[in-house]
């Protein structure tokens, strides 16, 4: 088997809250391989947000190791972590986090602005490419407020893939969307996964998790299950949906 893209081993994360130690993660280990579409599930307080922060190099573990694309994130400076995020990770957030009053294409270009090696022209080309991939090439110059929620999330996904990351991290990416649009977004993720993108999808909805090929369940800082399954096609789910639902 190929080398894992993510490799975490006995990961622990402890916070100090009001003089008391809170163990958010209590020794978690797993690996994610290229081409996987993993959902990380858990109810609130299960440690999945902490997990996502660490996987996204926004936070560092208290103990344990974490390798992303073969690079250890232990003892990295803020700037080194920022570079890892810039080059290796694509984030998709629940609330899209698009810059207001900034066109779709400019939003998508944003991560590349923080990469000095990329020329203005390449930046543009790659942003157009990414928007094409999410099916919004014709909305390039639209402002976020001129786009629907689903379209905004598509722009956010384009922004996440524009730097060609080794992994896409989605944090409740369908949380703000209605069922139909959620399915559409999941369909897009499946499409991207089909093109070889590795995706980790954090969610608390088991319904959404069925669209992924592997589900890691967290509870109280431990992994309670880690199972692989053939994923349900989101496109098919969309077609089966009664046309007037949620509209």
């Amino acid at each position: 088997m190929a080398h894992p893209i993510l490799k975490i081993d006995n990961l622990r994360r402890t916070f100090m809250v009001g003089g008391e130690e809170v163990h958010a993660l209590k020794g978690v280990s797993f690996e994610i391989y290229p081409g996987e579409f993993v959902s990380i599930m858990g109810s609130s307080g299960s440690g999945k947000s902490t997990m996502l922060n660490i996987l996204g190099c926004l936070d560092t573990p208290t103990s344990g190791t974490y390798y992303i694309d073969g690079i250890s994130v232990k003892d990295r400076s803020r700037n080194e972590l920022a570079d890892i995020r810039n080059h290796k990770i694509g984030f998709v957030f629940q609330s899209y986090n698009l810059l207001p009053r900034t066109s779709a294409i400019e939003n998508v270009e944003l991560p590349l602005l923080y990469n000095n090696k990329i020329s203005v022209r390449e930046r543009r080309e790659r942003a157009i490419e990414a928007l094409e991939l999410v099916g919004l090439k014709d909305r390039m110059e639209h402002m976020p407020n001129q786009l629907s929620g689903g379209q905004q999330q598509r722009v956010a996904i384009a922004r996440a893939i524009v730097n060609d990351p080794v992994i896409l991290l989605a944090d409740e990416a369908t949380g703000n969307l209605d069922t139909r649009t959620s399915f559409e977004i999941m369909s897009l993720f499946q499409e991207l996964n089909g093109k070889g993108k590795t995706i980790a999808f954090v969610t608390h909805e088991s319904d959404i998790a069925t669209f992924t090929s592997r589900t890691i369940m967290l509870r109280d800082g431990h992994i309670i299950s880690d199972g692989k399954a053939e994923y349900r096609s989101a496109r098919k789910a969309l077609e089966e949906m009664p046309p007037d639902i949620d509209e």
């Binding site: 996204g56 995020r85 957030f93």
Partner: peptide
Amino acid sequence: TKEIGLRMAIGAHSSS
């Protein structure tokens, strides 16, 4: 604040 968080998440250095 949120915009700053986003910029940092996608790779902006503090200095940027």
